[in-house]
Design a protein around this nucleic acid. Structure first.
Lengths: 212, 212
DNA sequence: TAGATTGTTAATCGATTAACAATC
DNA sequence: TAGATTGTTAATCGATTAACAATC
């Protein structure tokens, strides 16, 4: 039975399901039961069946799940077939690392452009992606709307840059700056934070607890 | 009343508390009530008082919390005063981005070394941090143990590299590879994942849901 | 003193786990 | 058919919220 409102706990597990199913597929495994998948992921079989049942009936009694079919279903649920476009704002170290190394394509995204202020970079291409000047951001987005902007600008201009692209109708911001973006100022824009510092401090807590 | 076992939901909120308190302090605010802090963070006052009470009594009835005192308390809880050391494994784009831009110091960590296989990099320094050859990893760690290793190596060697440093007594791994490290193979090592792909796919889900 | 706000206990809400009929 | 395993309902567990006495 499909559910209306999916809890964020479930949503956050979906990419992990996808990752594991992709690995199972690549190692040639055709079918899998909830209990086997649970064991390999460190979850309970109940939870997996409960999670999946939010979106539909993908298994078969007495058989389990077809790995490839389930993988495609999860990909679809995650919106990986929607041909989302993405632009990178800020081609510093981190922005360039994402441009050159992150597999946008295999996660269902198409990287179409990057923006920076550095005259050394503007006008060049990196891994086939052109780097434009940030001054042309609005003009670019008017002509070629993108789904998601990757925010890898310096913290000082993070808020401003976010507001600018929000006004141009971007639907998502992937925020790598350590700044908390004011969601309420940007209605209709989904924000996903990657807070390096928060992550490291969590680790700091965990290792500090071990050795009191 | 201090609690023994802190739930991971609480732990994950601690860095956010720290970040907000640090910002309040920098904007010169001396005291704050749980309800004001709650509003600015998008939480409830109850939750904040409940969270903090896991670690002690930091407030005062009728007054609230002293921002700077609470900030220092949270820093201490997070282990930011423990002089943890950190080494970066893999000085590719991402590794270098962290070396050059991430404020390890102000998060309580001291970056002491980086490791790579690239002869162009080995022997050089970047932002004051020497880059050694990965072959010398074990020898280095024997002489100068580090608390945390940052895993920014290619996915193919992630598992091996993790095991190697785990055997050398590292207490934490900050994992930026898209590989799920087997926690059970490395007892006593805390693993904190930064899964870019999982994060982007979560955003993909959220923006796809908006426009069905 | 009166008003404000904490820390804590109790109530509620939501998420996870267990159980089981349905059925491949 | 017998064994396996799903999807779903019910039970349990844990986390969040509400309430309030204590007290600054």
């Amino acid at each position: 039975m499909k559910k209306d409102k999916i809890s964020s706990a479930v949503i956050r597990r979906l990419p992990r399901y996808y990752r594991h199913l992709d690995e199972l597929r690549r190692s040639g495994i055709v079918r899998i039961s909830s209990s086997f998948l649970a064991k390999s992921m460190g979850l309970t079989a109940s939870q997996i069946r409960q999670d999946l049942s939010c979106f539909g009936c993908f298994g078969q009694q007495g058989y389990g799940y077809n790995v490839e079919r389930l993988r495609l279903e999860v990909a679809d649920i995650l919106g990986m077939n929607r041909k989302h476009t993405v632009a990178i704002l800020g081609a510093g170290n981190l922005g360039r690392a994402l441009m050159e190394n992150f597999p946008f394509q295999s996660n269902g995204f198409q990287l179409v452009a990057a923006f920076d202020v550095d005259p050394e970079l503007v006008g060049k291409e990196l891994s086939g992606t052109p780097i434009h000047h940030v001054d042309s951001l609005e003009e670019y987005l008017r002509n070629d709307p993108v789904s998601v902007c990757v925010l890898t600008v310096p913290a000082g201009v993070a808020g401003d840059t976010a507001r600018r692209v929000a006004e141009c109708g971007v639907t998502g911001i992937w925020n790598f700056t350590n700044v908390e973006l004011p969601q309420q100022d940007m209605p209709g824009v989904q924000i996903e934070d990657v807070h390096f510092a928060d992550s490291l401090l969590t680790l700091s807590y965990m290792i500090s607890e071990e050795e009191p």
